[in-house]
Amino acid sequence: MSWTGPGDPADVVAGLVATFEQVYDARPDLVGRAPGRVNLMGEHTDYNAGLVLPVALPHSTWAAVRRRDDDLVRVRSLQQDLGWQGTIGSCGPGGPQGWAAYAVGVLWALGPGLGEQGRAVPGLDILIDSTVPVGAGLSSSAALECAVATAVVGALDLDLDLDRRRAVVAAAIRAETEVVGAPTGGMDQTVAMLAEAGTALLLDFDTGTSRPVALGLARNGLRLLVTDTRVAHALVDGGYAQRRADCEEAARQLGVPTLRHATPEQADHLADDRLRRRARHVTTEIRRVELVAEAIEAHDRAALTRLVLASHLSMRDDFEISCPELDAAVDTAVEAGALGARMTGGGFGGSTVALVPEERVEAVARAIDARFVRDGFAAPAHLLAEPSDGAGTAWRP
């Protein structure tokens, strides 16, 4: 059985600082950190101005940075063979490619100034380390963007207050959309910056409001088991963009600004079968987010079981973003004792999340492993999602 641990933060930071000194022949000014996330409910609802209920993971990305006296940007990652270098002016669209676009695109998106002080983003040396699984649908990209931006805010001696956290969210969304070319709805970046330990974050993308929802997992003897199917998940291969386009067309045909303003009954009147199913998923999923938040606060296990299963079936059948590995992990988790399980993230691979009684965690993980062997799938990996804090400064000398 393969478990993906978050790493000891002190050890990660110490190793990153030491490696930074070797790579750049100087100590970093500070280390910023931002978490990955797992979404409990609300897939493909963020860009439809809907509701989502994500949790920040203890698995994080760290960015060690040092200010330079020129406008050169150099970025390396302990998870990548090749780095990138260029000027601040070349960090925008058409410049960096691949993983580096996430890391330095946010420098361009932060703009000429940060906050009322109007401090320009300087040249930087950057070194990245991460324990967020890549391609697992756990928001490794947003964690990278937000870790770098958080480190930059600290390097400029600015407070990471709520307004600046929201500015980082906006910059990270712009970087991913305009530099990377991945259409993001903003959930991942928002929870990376605003999450609170022990809670999920109920986000309303219509009103722009959010509130923490206390999960009380330990008190209720429950754990969040995440299974990475090892099926590569990518947001730039067209599937995500097509679903978004379908939702926009469905809203246009229904005469509403977004599907947040439509009902499942209205969705059922769409003539096109594909658009009808896409809209049905989004409109029912938005309602499920509200009901799951209520069920959590009411400790209603039966409702959680019903809602989580309905969400997965909706993603599998109406939104068509599941795959055999995700379906197998969900079915097996429930058969082995999970209260409920569903795929999580953008889909087309990635991970599942299961709400499991603490005494059944190992048994559920073993059952999923056995099912993957039986079905001829690659071995999955598992992690425990402990609801964690959002981004912040992890180290200063």
Rank of each mutant, 00 (worst) to 15 (best):
A103Q: 09
G118Y: 11
G181S: 06
A14M: 01
D375L: 15
R66G: 05
D161P: 04
R274Y: 01
A200N: 07
L384P: 01
R76F: 08
R252E: 06
V153L: 06
E294P: 03
V236M: 03
A120M: 13
A34E: 01
L326T: 02
P264I: 01
V226E: 04
A136H: 07
L383V: 08
R219H: 07
Q253K: 12
G135L: 10
R166W: 13
A142Q: 03
V308S: 04
R342E: 10
Q242M: 13
E196G: 02
S77M: 10
D81S: 15
A218N: 07
T19Y: 01
D273T: 14
P58D: 09
V308W: 12
A101D: 07
H269S: 15
C146R: 01
A56K: 10
R37H: 14
E362V: 15
V104F: 10
N39W: 11
A333N: 07
T352C: 09
G346H: 08
A251W: 01
V153E: 05
A56H: 08
A271R: 15
H312F: 11
R316V: 00
A271F: 00
E248Q: 15
E335S: 12
S60Q: 10
W3H: 11
V17I: 11
V236T: 15
E297R: 14
A34P: 04
D163N: 13
W3V: 13
G118P: 00
V236I: 03
A303G: 00
V292Q: 04
E178H: 15
R342I: 11
A149W: 07
G154N: 07
L107E: 08
D327K: 10
T209A: 14
I368M: 09
C323K: 02
E362Q: 14
A56M: 09
A49Q: 15
G113M: 00
D157H: 10
R301L: 13
Q85C: 11
G135Y: 10
P264M: 03
Y240K: 03
S130G: 14
V134Y: 01
A34C: 05
A34W: 08
A171G: 09
A101W: 12
A192N: 03
A100K: 07
D327R: 09
S322V: 06
S130P: 00
A200I: 03
N48A: 14
P387A: 03
A250Q: 02
P6M: 04
L51I: 05
S139C: 08
A298T: 13
G42N: 10
T87D: 13
H299N: 15
